[in-house]
């Protein structure tokens, strides 16, 4: 489709604009409803602690959806993504206070591939911990 970034203008190491995504309990309730994932570890602190978690944690898929925005906002057209994968390494802990948590996402071009495609590697950090590993996307550029 129609990515606005030209393949010839990027090189290995090109950084994408970084973004930070706030997440609080209301964010998680809304995501639960929209995604259909009502696992109580994402909204019920008592339940989360009972199963050994420090507090309510964000849906991994919410973190995955947030992280890829760094790529889709850069591309313009999310339809230019061919592959996207992550490993969930640490939970994003979301306390019930007036701050919640923040997911900080950086990304850079890690490889130039054939067919005007590039591989972008992403890093997502919350409370100083890497929350995604092996996080990478393959995208088509113009």
């Amino acid at each position: 489709m129609a990515a606005r970034i030209a393949y010839d203008e990027v090189e290995v190491g090109t950084e994408l604009p970084a973004q930070s995504f706030p997440v609080d309990r209301a964010t998680l309730v809304r995501y639960a409803g929209a995604s259909g994932d009502f696992n109580p570890i994402h909204w019920n602190e008592r339940f989360a602690r009972e199963v050994g978690l420090p507090d309510v944690i964000a849906h991994g898929m919410f973190t995955m959806a947030s992280a890829v925005r760094v790529v889709t906002d850069w591309l313009g057209d999310p339809g230019a993504i061919e592959e996207y994968g992550v490993r969930f390494t640490k939970p994003v802990v979301v306390p019930d206070d007036d701050k919640g948590a923040v997911i900080e996402v950086t990304a850079k071009v890690a490889a130039k591939l054939d067919g005007k495609r590039v591989r972008v590697d992403l890093t997502a950090v919350s409370a100083g911990q890497k929350v995604l590993g092996m996080s990478r996307a393959v995208v088509r550029l113009a």
Partner: peptide, 22 residues
């Protein structure tokens, strides 16, 4: 879903914006 992940990209909500990208 787009609102739940906080993503305002119009390609998710506006058929004209989606059409402009093919």
């Amino acid at each position: 879903f787009a609102e739940a992940v906080g993503d305002p990209n119009p390609v998710y909500t506006d058929p004209a914006a989606a059409g402009a990208l093919g």
